[in-house]
Computed example of a mutant assay.
Amino acid sequence: MKLTPKQKKFADEYIKTGNIEKSALYAGYSKSYSRANSHKLLANVGVKLYIEKRMKQIESEAIMDSTEAVKLLTSIARGELMETVVVGTPVGAETVEKEADIKTRISAIKEILKRYPGNDKLVEQQIRKMSAEADIAEKKVDMLSGSDGEITININPFREDI
């Protein structure tokens, strides 16, 4: 069933606001019709079907699907996704774009691998190496910032804290 331009405008506005009367007024219906009879627009089968179809479409666009999630994890793992951080400088604070740190990238890789099982030994070794490098880098930062200087490196690739 084809909708009139007014019905379509009403339905689109109703989706945005959820207000029957205001949506009818916005669509061009008279004030008296909007106040007394706008509920009839929602009872119209064509309008009802149009609203349901648009709501499903909006829902599918708003919710991330598994392909999009894996693409996002991949961009994080590759260091392609930049984040804005605030850095203190002698002059004040400034914002800087930086890629995800190594631990975040490792976590993204692990999440991707959970979705693609296969336990590739090469991948396991690469993750183990990256984890060790992350631990070393973290300890170097601690040493430079004045910690006690003790270095412990955990090379278990399946640690829960990374």
Results as ranks from 00 to 15, higher is better:
M1T: 15
M1V: 15
L3T: 10
L3M: 11
P5K: 14
K6Y: 10
K6Q: 14
Q7S: 05
Q7V: 06
K8M: 14
K9D: 06
K9I: 09
F10N: 02
Y14H: 03
I15M: 09
I15P: 00
I15H: 06
K16A: 09
K16R: 15
T17D: 04
N19I: 12
E21C: 05
K22H: 09
K22D: 12
K22Q: 15
L25F: 04
Y29E: 00
Y29I: 03
S32F: 04
Y33I: 06
Y33V: 05
S34H: 02
S34K: 01
L41H: 01
A43G: 06
A43L: 07
N44R: 06
N44I: 03
G46I: 01
G46W: 00
L49Q: 14
L49I: 11
Y50S: 00
Y50G: 00
I51Y: 03
E52R: 12
K53H: 12
M55G: 06
K56V: 10
Q57R: 10
Q57C: 04
E59R: 15
S60Q: 13
S60N: 13
I63D: 06
S66W: 03
E68D: 14
V70S: 04
K71W: 06
L72S: 12
L73F: 13
S75F: 03
S75A: 11
S75G: 04
I76Y: 01
R78F: 09
E83Q: 13
T84F: 02
T84W: 04
V85W: 07
V87T: 10
G88R: 15
T89K: 11
T89I: 10
T89C: 03
G92N: 08
A93C: 08
K98N: 03
K103E: 08
I106Y: 00
S107W: 05
E111K: 14
K114E: 09
K114A: 12
R115V: 06
Y116F: 15
P117M: 07
K121P: 09
E124R: 15
E124K: 14
Q125L: 13
Q125K: 14
Q125T: 10
I127C: 04
I127V: 15
I127T: 09
R128G: 01
K129E: 13
K129D: 13
M130Q: 10
M130K: 13
M130P: 01
S131D: 01
A132Q: 07
A137Q: 11
K139Q: 07
K140E: 02
V141Q: 10
D142E: 13
L144P: 02
S145V: 07
S145A: 12
S147C: 04
G149K: 04
G149V: 03
E150P: 00
N156V: 03
N156M: 01
D161E: 11
D161M: 07
I162E: 06
